[in-house]
């Protein structure tokens, strides 16, 4: 069994079927990227995985254990193993950078504050934000906030990290610093599920790429396959369109 197994997941917003029978897996430390047109359900899949949007069918297994999305305990357990960073860096505006990063370890994992702060400073250093530990989110640029958001997610020591278009709200010159940060995570044994429109980056860091369209996974394969010789015509269309930009 794989580290993360998504089996036949479906989900709807009211009558609108957004995910249909999605099956996908990732081994420990793998980097799996989701690509596909706007509205194809990429964000929804990540939201289902972390328990923000309820699935209407199917199951998710982590390390062989089935996640029960209806149980608070199971959700809390899940969120001890999995973290997410969103497109809109939603840091807690009322807390400074250091507190944003330490709140989960201190209040949820009950770590001593000093220990959590030492670790948080290490993580901030990793994302290049150690000098802004005392700043408040509204004093930071978008790229800086996004890097803090990544540090905050890492502070929970996730085995699986979900990244949803973390660079698409950023100015072009800020994109690189955030991508560099993500690149530095790819060899640490964390399983990464990345939704991104940065095709060059996806191609470089992914072990596998999944193409989504209309709530379904159309094709999964190594980046060379998806970008050079896709099997499905839908993938070919999408990739050629986006690469010709």
């Amino acid at each position: 069994m794989h580290h993360l197994e998504i089996r036949n997941i479906s989900s709807s917003y009211g009558k609108l079927e957004v995910l249909r029978d999605v099956t996908l897996s990732a081994d420990k430390g793998e980097v799996v990227s989701l690509i596909g047109p706007s509205g194809s359900g990429k964000s929804t899949l990540l939201r289902v995985l972390i328990g923000l949007t309820p699935p209407t069918g199917g199951n998710v297994y982590i390390g062989g254990n089935k996640v029960d999305y209806n149980s608070r305990k199971s959700l809390k357990d899940l969120r001890g193993h999995m973290a997410i960073v969103f497109q809109q860096y939603n840091l807690f505006q009322n807390m400074n950078v250091l507190r944003n990063v330490t709140i989960a370890p201190v209040k949820i994992k009950k770590k001593p504050r000093e220990e959590a702060e030492v670790r948080a400073r290490g993580l901030l250093q990793k994302v290049g934000m150690e000098e802004k530990a005392d700043a408040y989110p509204d004093e930071l640029s978008g790229g800086q906030q996004q890097r803090v958001a990544i540090a905050r997610a890492l502070a929970t020591s996730p085995e699986i990290l979900l990244l949803d278009e973390v660079t698409s709200a950023l100015d072009p010159e800020r994109v690189k610093e955030v991508l560099d940060t993500i690149r530095s995570l790819t060899h640490e044994g964390i399983t990464l599920i990345i939704v991104s429109h940065e095709m060059a980056f996806v191609r470089e860091v992914s072990t596998r790429v999944a193409m989504m369209d209309q709530g379904k996974i159309v094709e999964v394969g190594p980046p060379e396959q998806i970008f050079r010789s896709p099997v499905e015509s839908r993938t070919r269309d999408f990739v050629s369109k986006i690469l010709s930009h």
Binding site: L52, K76, R79, G80, N90, A149
Partner: peptide
């Protein structure tokens, strides 16, 4: 209170009560 902050808090593993205490109340107070 921004919904996105509440969601971020939930995904970090905070309970409903902790979300109220650490995320919502400071916004509300402000």
């Amino acid at each position: 209170v921004r919904r996105s902050e509440i969601e971020a808090a939930a995904t970090l593993g905070m309970s409903q009560l902790q979300i109220v205490r650490y995320v919502m109340l400071p916004h509300i107070a402000k």
